[in-house]
Amino acid sequence: MHDIAFTLNGRPWSLRVEPRRTLVDAIRDDCGATGTHIGCEHGVCGACTILLDGEPVRSCLMFAVQADGRALRTVEGLEKDGALHPLQRAFIDHHALQCGFCTPGFLMLAVGVLERTPNISDEALTDVLSSNLCRCTGYQNIVRAVRAAAEEMAP
């Protein structure tokens, strides 16, 4: 067992984990933050996407021990002081979710990318949003929502 510490949405956590415990299992089951979902556990669907020191990563493809000393952000950290993040708001306004299972992964993917590249081109945005799978929406409204939020987030 390994003792690790990280911050999740700014809050410090200390855990004792088995090396094989995946980061997503630690976030969900040890920290109780079940907003990050598990869709495939082999790195294809993107439902478990979180931000690791600001970069979108698949949390099913990392072990919790590897997150020692790192800053993690998940969907639960997007809302600030009762106000939804512009992306959350845009997902509602543009009907970018149906069942909502893939939504946290898409939100964190988009947050991570837009924070670094607020003026992302359409082509680059298509490439980025092709990273994750959605089975309900056909993606069209996800693109619209992210585009709308990008405009709001741009400085």
């Binding site: 907003g35 639960e76 959350q88 909502g100 939100l107």
Partner: peptide, 12 residues
């Protein structure tokens, strides 16, 4: 439906 789902507060 959207409120809890965009906040990661769903119950799957």
């Amino acid at each position: 439906e959207d409120g809890p789902l965009v906040r990661g507060r769903g119950l799957f």
